[in-house]
């Protein structure tokens, strides 16, 4: 039982994100004309899940002290591919889903290879790959369109037993199947260690490269699940650069709100999920309080700016000025 204090310290970011989400969602629901009905919950869950998936993808990379500015482009690329292949009978649809996930993982793996073996800065490397991914998406879908297996789409964005949003169950399944095994495995710990201090991790014989590679690849995979989900949402694919850049930006905002350190080594994908839901709830607040929709981009930008500025509070604790220059 003495361990609870360490556990609390480790999970502080996640718990703060949960608290922000709970607060914002309560304000949102109490001002919503319809109150907390299953339909309101379903809409909120679907919008939040999409961002949460991209935020989880971003978290995996951020934990290794990197950043993935191509995450939005992977989302758009897999959205375009899904609108072409996830259709037909059950077998064809399954194959299509597997193919989309494979492409996502491949994009992530490419980022990982370039960053690890090319020894490039993750920022510029992923700006470059992002341009490539978006270019491919434009070739595949110059105009918005396509179809998706509607039975599957409705099932994934609907409700189970008429109460629980299916998207939340899917998110839970992903946490159980992807995130928890990853962060308790040696490779996952190596990803954390590489983000915390690469030299120390190397000296301790951690498999840094495998850890980073796994983080980038899983990041691509999660982004492609996001792309699939976007397709289920819209029933079509669109190579929109606005979607790509918006989701890249929002994923970083959600990660920061979720208590994940942008310097690496701290935070968890669960925090990022709450960060994503909190961010969506804040955005939705504008609608229940009847603000003009025009103000939404500005509002989101200001929240992001404030969220990243909160990270600067740590400067007050610095005793030696040289630590400013890390």
């Amino acid at each position: 039982m003495r361990d609870w204090r360490y556990w609390l310290a480790e999970q502080r970011g996640t718990l703060i994100a949960l608290a922000i989400f709970a607060l914002m969602f309560t304000i949102y629901i109490s001002n919503h004309p319809a109150g907390l009905t299953t339909n309101v919950a379903q809409t909120a869950a679907n919008k939040g899940t999409l961002l949460a998936l991209v935020a989880m993808a971003q978290t995996l990379v951020v934990i290794t002290a990197g950043i993935d500015l191509s995450v939005g482009a992977i989302l758009v690329l897999t959205n375009c591919i899904a609108s072409m292949v996830v259709t037909g009978n059950a077998f064809e649809t399954t194959l299509g889903v597997v193919f989309v996930l494979f492409v996502g993982a491949l994009c992530g793996a490419l980022n990982g290879l370039i960053v690890i073996y090319g020894r490039l800065q993750p920022i510029v490397a992923t700006i470059g790959t992002g341009a490539i991914f978006f270019g491919i998406a434009l070739i595949l879908r110059p105009l918005p369109g396509g179809t998706v297996n509607e039975t599957l789409a409705d099932a994934m964005t609907g409700k189970v037993f008429g109460i629980v949003p299916a998207s939340l169950l899917m998110l839970l399944a992903i946490v159980l199947v992807v995130w928890l095994p990853f962060c308790s495995s040696v490779i996952g710990r190596a990803a954390y260690a590489a983000g915390s201090s690469e030299t120390a991790a190397y000296m301790s014989g951690m498999p840094i490269r495998r850890g980073k590679f796994a983080a980038y690849t899983l990041g691509g995979l999660l982004a492609s699940i996001g792309g699939l989900f976007l397709t289920f949402f819209t029933y079509s694919g669109q190579a929109s650069s606005a979607t790509a850049s918006t989701y890249t930006l929002l994923s970083i905002a959600a990660v920061v709100l979720g208590g994940v350190s942008l310097f690496g080594g701290r935070g968890s994908a669960i925090g990022a999920i709450f960060g994503a839901f909190a961010f969506r709830a804040i955005g939705d607040l504008m609608f229940v309080f009847d603000f003009d929709a025009l103000w939404q981009p500005l509002f989101q930008g200001v929240i992001l700016l404030l969220a990243v500025s909160i990270g600067a509070l740590g400067l007050w604790r610095v005793r030696n000025r040289l630590e400013w220059f890390g």
Binding site: L120, V124, A125, G128, T129, A131, I132, G135, I136, I139
Partner: peptide, 15 residues
């Protein structure tokens, strides 16, 4: 060359 090709060439050239 369409916009898509330009994007890809940018990315490849930068990397």
């Amino acid at each position: 060359m369409p916009e898509a090709g330009r994007q890809i060439i940018y990315g490849v050239v930068i990397i």
